[in-house]
Amino acid sequence: MMRKKLALFLVCIMTAPAMADESEFEGSWMLDVQVPAAPLAGLLELDSTDSGWVAFVEGGPAPVKIEDNHIELLIDARDRQGYLFQRKLVGELNADGVMTGSMESIDVLESAAEFGENGSSWSARPHIDSPPQQPIKNLSELAGTWAPLRGVDFRKWTMALTPAAKEWVAGYDARMDEPQKRCISPGLVAAVTWSFPFEIVVADDKLVLLYEAFNLSRRVFIDGRKDPDFYPNSSMGYSTGRLENGEFVVESKLLTHTTRDFNGEPISENATTIERYRLSDNSNRLSLELTLIDPDNYERPPIRRRVWTRQDDAVIYPFECDPDSFFRQLFDEGRMQEYIDRTPRRP
């Protein structure tokens, strides 16, 4: 009898899941939240510092609590209209090296209404640069019209700004300073991730990307040409692209000074962006991870994401923009002088 009990105890000990060590949280993770209508994905970085754990989601700070194998993470975000809210993720690091949990609550900061996410499950797996399941073999596979899908991007609100960028944001007034209100291009980072369709036309030496938003267009040179002299800075920059491990990788530079998102975080003329495009779903889905590298303004590179579905019967509509009504509103509200006084704020 005693032997049987001992054997049972040993079996229990050997088969019981081992509790993960707290140090195993350290590193980069790929975070997925299974929101039914719009799944979210983002890079989670966890660092153990002298003053405790720090976390970054998509390059922006996120308050975190870690104890034993338990983790709580608070991620601020904006909804599609710019209202702020927070997602609270609670979970555990399991013996198999995967974090799992649920979204316990959403704290509304500015009457945001991206509800319907409560109780969604989430997971985080170690982030490794795995090759795409469906490698792009020829850039002609990208040709066509692409319509945006919901979700994927966390729309992380707070980023790891430099002191100079913080000062800029503190003085930002979205009602007056947003370039798109004046029909001015918001710049590559914002425009590429907006919910408008776009078309890719493939030529021998370049891809031409035609965006419905603000009639924007860009050329991504793929022939390895030498950069032109004296190419001017512009909202969509100067882009070169290449196939790399089954992904289409686009590097852009020579951007104009603009803002990253509704918060008014600046992008400098020294910034570069890296876009990584992947195909899936039998070439009917295109996904993008866009990283902004701008040490003048960000201590960690912000990341944005977007997914599109192929919709070749769609037509890109002309986006004729007229700022007249914006200026008329300023006039009607007696804020024209204030607008003029803020000229230095408009890059």
């Binding site: 710019g82 945001a112 007034d173 009602r175 947003e178 914002a190 907006w194 919910s195 938003a213």
Partner: peptide
């Protein structure tokens, strides 16, 4: 709702 290309909230 989707006045999403500017900060509606502001």
């Amino acid at each position: 709702e989707a006045l999403a290309h500017h900060s509606y909230a502001a």
